[in-house]
Amino acid sequence: MRKNKSIFSRKFLAVPYAVFMILFVVIPLMLIIAYAFTDESGRITLDNFRAFFSGGHNINTLMFSIFIGFLNTAICLVLGYPAAFILAKKEFGFGTATVLLFVMPMWINFVLRTAATRDLLFAIGISGGEYPYLATMIGMVYNYLPFVILPLYTTMTKMDKSLIEASYDLGANKVQTFFKTILPMTMPGVISAATMVFMPTMSSYVISDVMGERKISLIGNSIQLYFDQGLWHIGSLVALIMLAIIAIGSFCADSEPQENARGGLW
């Protein structure tokens, strides 16, 4: 009886979340779309599109961002994969503590961490002013490496060791076993790691700003610049394009046949 009288039903628990989503996700998204397709007078227009795609500079920035995104992902994977592999191998005797050491930078304030990296690089002679690209890439790799190691480490520790033994047993040597067994089986971790790195790299602007001393412009920097100048409409359009790219990227990653694409931690 009591239960029936009660005004609260369990679904009301979802109200705060729904309110939050509407206020901070749906409405801003709508606003971005609305802004992207209107001009200052509120007229619906595709001028913003035209303006963005006619300026070679914008296209260049977009392409460059995608390139930096790929490059950073590739470097992080090349460095992170062996690191995770060694960490996950019990024979080497690295415990969770070592893994923690690799992950710890993620816990330090992002701005502080990036500024410190810049100063450190400056001290050893790689100043952002002289080598903006090198400094930016080092900053990017440093920031995103933990995001690669962690999902890969999780996938690798969960991997069934008898599958590797089966591969040896069937005549595959160590190199063949790596390419035919270990790599394909850790692919979910690789994809998860790649998505964790590629998209944020593309849209980041703090790292390129701080490390490259404002000499490097990524698409994130463009958006920031437009908004700073009060160009809300074209800024929104660029944001929308980014959103589309990220959506396509996520879709591609998820359409991979592997289940549990994201390791246990993610």
């Binding site: 033994e165 595959a172 040597n173 692919m187």
Partner: peptide, 20 residues
């Protein structure tokens, strides 16, 4: 001799078939 050079093959307890 490493396992891949031995003319023996194993049927594993939990089969160890390659899921991919």
């Amino acid at each position: 001799l490493p396992p891949y050079k031995r003319p023996v093959n194993t049927v594993f307890q939990k089969y160890a078939l390659f899921p991919h």
